[in-house]
C-alpha cells in the first residue's frame, strides 16, 4: 500500500497544481465580476438590480455539475467552442460570482444607512463614500464568508474531472485505473482536499472572531 501511495504522489501533485490553478482563476475572476454585480445589486438603478437578482437566483438554482455540462456542451450551439479547461473555469466562475454577489449584498446590507448619509453630509462623492466609508466596514463582514466560499471553488473544481481536465480528482482516478487500489488513494485525495479547505475555513473563523471583537 505504501508503494502504491509513493507511486501515486507525483501524479497527484501534478493534479493538485491544476486544482489550485483552476480555483485561483475562479476566485479572482468571480470576485471581480461578482463584486461589481453585487455593488450594482445594492446601489444600481432598478433594471440593473433586476438583472443581477435574476442572474444570481437562476445560477444558484442550478446544480454546479449541470452548469458545467450546460456551458461545455451547450455553448458551442451559440458558436462558442471552449476547451474543457476554459469551460470548467467559466462555469465555476459563473457559479462563484453568484455567491460573491450575495456576500457583497450581505456585507453592505449590514452597514447602517446613516453611514451613507454621514458620508454625503461631509461632501464625499459616491465613489469616495464607497471607498472610504462603506468598503472599510463592509470588508469585515465580507471577508469571512468569502474565504469560506473559496472552499466551494476548491470543492467544485473536483467536478471538472468529468470534462477530462486532469485535476487532483482526475489524477486520482487515473492512478486507480492503473493500480486497482481504490481506497488508499481516495483517502489520500480526501486528506489533501481536507487540508486545503480546513485551512481556509479555519482562517475564515479566525477572521470572524477578530472582526467581531473589533466591532463592538
Amino acid at each position: 500500500m505504501l508503494a502504491a501511495i509513493l507511486y501515486a504522489i507525483p501524479f497527484l501533485m501534478q493534479g493538485l497544481l491544476t486544482t489550485i490553478v483552476v480555483s485561483l482563476l475562479v476566485v479572482v475572476l468571480s470576485t471581480a465580476i461578482g463584486g461589481l454585480m453585487g455593488i450594482g445589486l445594492v446601489y444600481g438603478p432598478a433594471p440593473v438590480r433586476w438583472l443581477v437578482r435574476g442572474f444570481s437566483d437562476i445560477v444558484r438554482g442550478i446544480p454546479i455539475l449541470v452548469l458545467i455540462f450546460f456551458i461545455y456542451y451547450g455553448l458551442p450551439i451559440a458558436g462558442l467552442n471552449l476547451q474543457p479547461f476554459s469551460a470548467a473555469v467559466l462555469a465555476l466562475t459563473v457559479f462563484k460570482s453568484a455567491q460573491v454577489i450575495e456576500n457583497v449584498r450581505g456585507a453592505i446590507g449590514s452597514i447602517p444607512r446613516g453611514q451613507m448619509d454621514a458620508g454625503k453630509a461631509v461632501g464625499l462623492t459616491f465613489a469616495q463614500r464607497l471607498a472610504y466609508v462603506i468598503a472599510p466596514q463592509a470588508i469585515r463582514r465580507f471577508l469571512p464568508p468569502w474565504i469560506n466560499g473559496v472552499t466551494d471553488a476548491v470543492k467544485g473544481s473536483a467536478l471538472v474531472s468529468l470534462l477530462g481536465v486532469t485535476d487532483l480528482m482526475h489524477a486520482m482516478q487515473q492512478v486507480i485505473g492503473r493500480t486497482y487500489n481504490a481506497l488508499p488513494l481516495y483517502v489520500l485525495g480526501a486528506i489533501i482536499y481536507f487540508v486545503i479547505n480546513y485551512g481556509l475555513s479555519a482562517l475564515s473563523r479566525m477572521l470572524e472572531r477578530r472582526f467581531s471583537y473589533i466591532r463592538e
Binding site: G114, A118, A121, L124
Partner: peptide, 17 residues
C-alpha cells in the same frame, strides 16, 4: 458633493464612521 460640503450636518444617531 461640493454643495453638501458647504453645509454641515449633525445626526441624531451620530453616524460616526
Amino acid at each position: 458633493a461640493r454643495m453638501r460640503a458647504e453645509t454641515g450636518m449633525v445626526f441624531q444617531m451620530f453616524n460616526l464612521f
